[in-house]
Nucleic acid binder design. Structure first.
Length: 290
DNA sequence: TGCAGTGTTGCTTC
DNA sequence: CGAAGCAACACTGC
């Protein structure tokens, strides 16, 4: 799922459902997702603790608990968080959904961690590819270890001068820089493609060659696209769902992402795809000249 | 059938 | 230091 708008939608959906609740147990069939320490350690550390807040930094979900403890979840490629009720199996069977409709999709087959709450509901982490990451510990320790304090300004509120500063001293291609969480937080492949199309900038343009106007356009496009995507609840091109299982609305509105070969929405030229690093970038060869 | 491609990140290698 | 390649994993679509 996971770029800023999807993670933000998840956090907003999650807060009213789980803040104030106490975690009374944890279930997992994939302890490898717990990156620091063991499943038993996680269980011991968080059971009995009340959830104080849920927030987001870049694409990380931060769940603050009583006693200065922090539970950090990164959804990586295909993780989702959901709140519902499941019948928990003892051994290798999958959890069986007991709650309402939206979650009875295939996604239930990929639930790997479940936090059981004191009101009978549960918070589940589902992840087809098992790339997601769960970390826990004392707040400051987790923040330091996961380098949360090294992350750049949030893409939604970065200022124009901060962006100019970031672009100043690098010959890197602009797409690579937009994807670099230590410089700008929250942008991934979908939104970087759309931002650059909207700003009419080629993904491989070295950032130190961008004009003031181009930087201003990238800055504006970033704000516009991310706030639109947040207001639509993110993108569900593949399998992202919000915490109650609903799809996001940005997928239908996307500009160039995964539109290779389709006509550019401005000039009708077919959208092109190239490799940037080891990922795909889509752009209009006419509107976005190198 | 087989292989390239998929929203992320971080590690290794040069 | 930077850039590139790949690994973690499982599925879809050509």
């Amino acid at each position: 799922m996971p770029e800023l708008p999807e993670v933000e939608s998840t956090v907003r959906g999650l807060s009213p459902l789980i803040v104030g609740r106490k975690i009374i147990d944890v279930w997992s069939d994939a302890p490898k997702l717990i990156k620091n320490g063991t499943f038993e350690g996680l269980k011991k550390s968080i059971t009995g603790k009340k959830i104080l807040s849920v927030s987001r930094r870049a694409k990380n979900i931060l769940i603050r608990l009583e006693g200065d403890d922090l539970l950090l979840i990164h959804l990586k490629m295909t993780g989702h968080l959901m709140v519902n009720k499941w019948n928990l199996p003892d051994k290798k069977e999958k959890p069986v959904p007991l709650g309402d409709g939206a979650l009875t999709e295939k996604v239930n087959g990929y639930i790997h961690v479940i936090f059981i709450l004191d009101d009978g509901r549960m918070l589940a982490l589902s992840d087809l590819r098992k790339f997601a990451k769960v970390t826990f510990g004392k707040e400051q320790e987790v923040i330091r270890k996961e380098k949360i304090d090294k992350i750049g300004p949030e893409a939604t509120d970065i200022t124009l001068s901060e962006l100019k500063d970031i672009f100043k001293d690098s010959k890197k291609g602009v797409k690579m820089v937009l994807l670099d969480q230590d410089r700008i937080a929250g942008i991934g492949n979908i939104y970087s493609d759309d931002i650059l199309w909207k700003a009419k900038v080629h993904p491989l343009r070295p950032v130190n060659s961008l004009s003031d106007k181009e930087i201003k356009d990238i800055h504006q496009a970033t704000r516009d696209i991310l706030s639109l995507a947040i207001s639509l609840g993110g993108t569900s091109i593949s399998d992202y769902r919000d915490v109650s299982g609903e799809r996001g609305g940005y997928g239908d509105r996307r500009l160039v992402y995964r539109r290779d070969g389709e006509p550019c929405k401005r000039c009708k030229t077919p959208i092109k795809r190239i490799k940037v690093g080891s990922r795909s970038a889509r752009f209009c060869p006419e509107c976005q000249k190198i």
